[in-house]
Design a protein around this nucleic acid. Structure first.
Lengths: 141, 141
DNA sequence: CGGATAACTTAGCCGATGCTAAGTTAGCAT
DNA sequence: ATGCTAACTTAGCATCGGCTAAGTTATCCG
């Protein structure tokens, strides 16, 4: 295992929460028009203070815009991240369903897995969804 | 998405580093007889101080034993966690290889994914490795 | 045996992500 | 219009996982 792997994992962790947030914010805006902090409080089951901090980081990093006591909006950059995250998330979840995993387990595991799936793996999963399983390496039993 | 999912993900994160550490410690002990902090420094590409803190948490949580300036050992609990982690890790990596992902990408992605794979998903991956792909849902196109 | 050097620990810092408690603002209802 | 309540922010704290810098211990070599 090379020396860069763990550094990549640490870097992934740093953006995970941002991805989760923008994905959920985008979702809530699609469904109900606006996204308030209280919606995120409910969704993530954390306190208002935690959401306030997290949204502050999103704004600082250019993913969201917000004025005090006003609904949260995404920047273009935030929307791009959201749709990338959603694509990965849905691909992983559909793939797990296709693998035979239950809806419940696929929902839970895809949340955790989506942030660690590189392009190659994602493409392989997508290929299964559109073209079926790859060939067996041997004459199968 | 239910309210417990993100709490589970947060809980997973808390044990991720412990899993990575015990897995690597166990590995190094298998290969060279003893595991020193400096081996972990090299492996994870972090400083001695970071390793010292991390090992302190492992000891505190009952996964490892260590005396100052002495090699690190695993407790029975630590060894159990290590072999669980290794099994998951290898299953995920082999599964990705079978999916057609390159050795390099499988190695990297399996590192991140292994911590988020529940029993059901793990079993499904294992089944593919031993029995081949599941049936297609429809008459394929 | 006595140093030099490598290995390790400790102290103190930072940022991320969580919390509680307390203060502020917005918005509705009377 | 005033006041209540819900929504939000701010302050201050903890833990984790990084870091640097400085101190301590072990070990090996001459």
């Amino acid at each position: 295992m090379d020396s860069h792997t763990h550094q990549r994992i640490r870097r992934d962790h740093a953006t995970e929460l941002a991805e989760d947030y923008v994905e959920v914010i985008d979702d809530i805006i699609s469904k109900s028009g606006i996204c308030r902090a209280v919606d995120l409080v409910e969704h993530f089951q954390v306190t208002h203070a935690t959401v306030s901090n997290a949204v502050g980081r999103l704004v600082r990093d250019g993913f969201a815009k917000s004025q005090a006591y006003q609904p949260i909006e995404l920047t273009a950059k935030g929307k791009r991240l959201a749709s990338k995250a959603r694509y990965r998330h849905e691909t992983v979840k559909s793939f797990l369903r296709r693998l035979g995993v239950s809806e419940e387990a696929a929902r839970i595991d895809s949340e955790g897995i989506e942030h660690h799936v590189g392009k190659e793996t994602l493409d392989a999963m997508q290929r299964v969804l559109t073209e079926g399983w790859p060939a067996e390496p041997e004459a199968g039993e």
